[in-house]
Structures are given as C-alpha cells and as structure tokens.
C-alpha cells in the first residue's frame, strides 16, 4: 500500500506537483495519465525519492519512505523507464543481476533468479544471458529492463512510459506480458503513460493529472461514466467511450445462455474484441468458450450494444 499525503514539489515558484493525495491499493495496477509536463514523472519519482518532495509525506506499507536512505529504498522498489536504461557495458544477465548483487545475494541464488526471469519473459537464458543490450531488439531490451526491475522481487514496481518506444504490435504484447507478470508476482504497479488506450487496457485505477494536480482518481468504468471535468472527458475522447467501455469488460461477463454458430470467442478476451469479431463475421451471435474449450453460451450484438451504452 502506498499512501501519498498532500505531496508537493516546487521548482522555483511553480508547483510541478501540487498537493497531491492518493492511496494505491496493494496488488493493483495504477496508471497515471495526463498531458506532457503535467507532473506525472515527478509524482512517480517522489515515491522512490529520485525526487525529494518540497512538502507532504509518502507512506509505503505504513512506513515513511524517508525512514531509510534513498538508495536502500530504491533497491526495494522496482524501476523501469522508457528506452529501458540498460547498462550498455554489461550483459543481459549482469544487467538483471544488478540489484541482487547490490543486495549481496549469493551467486547461485542470483543465477537462478536471472534464469527464472529470462524464461518468464520468453527469452532463452542460455542464448540471451551472455548477450549485450545492443544485440537485442527494442522489444527484447524493454523486457530485460522490466526483468531487471523485478529481479529483487520488489512489492512495488514503478514504470515511466515503459512501452513508449515500442511499435504497436510489440507494445500490445508487452502490455499483455505485464498483466501476466503482475498476476504471477502480485506486484503493486504504478505506471505513467500518456496513451489512454494503454491506460484503459492495464489499469485497475486511473489517476488523471493536469498542471500538477490529480483531477480524477477512479476505476476506468467510473471515469468513463462520470468524467470529473471537461479535461478528463477530452482526454478519454468522447467518440471512443463506448469502445473503451467494452474494452474494459471480459467476454465472460457478457455471455448469455444459448447456442450460436461460427468461430468461438475466448471468454477471457475483451468485449471489444467480441464486437469486432461479430461485426466482421456478419453474425448476430457467436459462441463463447472457456480456457478449457467448454462452451459457456454465446455473445450477441444486441447484448454488447446494451453494454456499450451510457449506463443509466
């Protein structure tokens, strides 16, 4: 749990982060969105004290984050940035081993951790461990950057526009990987982005920042239905709202009783994907199947249309 209490950061006269308070629940993904220069990075960097606040406090699991030296705090909090920030003179394995080495882990434990993380990120440890960062593709570098951030098994992971440099296909894959990783470790993730699509795809809660202040901090559905200000509404994009609403929900939740013909849809995929499949196939309904292949009913155009409408 991260409790941020009226935190303020001033550079000269301007408050870059202006008296922000928010509580981040454990094991969730919180996404901070906002226009460029709104103070997202500064807010996030105050959590691990890369930036020291002008006033206010931040409690991590009840303890003031200033109760231990900054570098010790940062070894307990994962940190991944856009453009990965890998050390060019160190191999992939050495990069991932950085924090465990700083913490003085035993060699065998470090080696096992590196291997586990590389496998988890679908990089063959034998092939990729000895390579240097410049020998990897952008997507692979980014995965290694996240793996390095997770190496010391932190409870909290801070990510500043981690997927900003990736092309759309790789980015979608990286986002799905992140969701899987979060499930696997139960990490509390705070992620900064300016991409609303990404925010709605990943977030349990979204914080919208504007000129150093949080203008709305809410679950995605809530934000879609009740945008707090015109700014939030513009940021979400009025024309996108029904589709964003569908993209949050899983097909399982929209499944109705009954049979249907055609290519079945996985219960875990989003309702937006289901709408897309229905429109493309020209059918009124398609069957829904679980992960084990069992039929769970069907999903219909009319049903999805009801769900995409503004809730009354």
């Amino acid at each position: 749990m991260i409790e941020i209490d009226s935190i303020t950061k001033r550079y000269g006269e301007t408050a870059v982060v202006d008296s922000v308070s928010m509580t981040i629940a454990p094991h969730t993904i919180t996404v901070i969105v906002g226009t460029s220069g709104s103070g997202k990075t500064t807010l996030m960097r105050m959590i691990n004290r890369l930036v020291e606040p002008t006033s206010g406090t931040i409690l991590i699991d009840g303890a003031d984050n200033r109760s231990i030296p900054g570098y010790e705090l940062r070894r307990r909090i994962g940190y991944a940035i856009q453009g990965h920030g890998l050390f060019p003179h160190r191999t992939v394995a050495e990069n991932i081993a950085t924090v465990p080495t700083l913490l003085g882990w035993e060699k065998s434990r470090i080696a096992a951790k590196v291997k586990e993380l590389l496998s988890l990120f679908q990089l063959d440890p034998a092939a990729f461990g000895p390579r240097y960062p410049h020998e990897l593709s952008g997507g692979q570098q980014q995965r290694v950057g996240v793996a390095r951030a997770l190496a010391a098994e932190p409870n909290i992971l801070l990510m500043d526009e981690p997927f900003g440099a990736l092309d759309p296909v790789i980015r979608a894959k990286a986002q799905d990987d992140l969701l899987a990783i979060q499930k696997h470790f139960g990490t509390t993730i705070v992620l900064v982005t300016h991409d609303m699509e990404e925010a709605f795809h990943l977030a349990d809660r979204i914080a919208v920042m504007d000129k150093g202040r949080i203008v709305q901090y809410a679950a995605p559905e809530e934000m879609l239905v009740n945008p707090a200000t015109d700014f939030v509404e513009t940021l979400i994009g009025a024309g996108e709202r029904p589709f964003r609403l569908l993209s949050i929900g899983a097909v399982a939740d929209a499944a109705e009783a009954g049979e249907a013909e055609g290519e079945p849809i996985a219960a875990a995929s989003s309702q937006r994907d289901a709408l897309s499949a229905l429109l493309w196939s020209g059918r009124e309904a398609l069957p829904v199947v679980g992960a084990d292949g069992a039929r769970l009913g069907r999903v219909t155009l009319a049903g999805l249309a009801r769900r995409a409408a503004r809730p009354q």
């Binding site: 890369l50 010790e72 940190y79 940035i81 920030g85 950085t98 700083l102 390095r148 951030a149």
Partner: peptide, 15 residues
C-alpha cells in the same frame, strides 16, 4: 554516459 543508464542506476538503488 547515456542519460538513461545514469537514471536507471540511480533508480534501481546504486549509491
């Protein structure tokens, strides 16, 4: 020295 490498070094807890 690349900015990113320096930022990451600080961010992951190097003194």
């Amino acid at each position: 020295v690349p900015r990113d490498a320096n930022d990451a070094a600080r961010g992951i807890g190097m003194t």
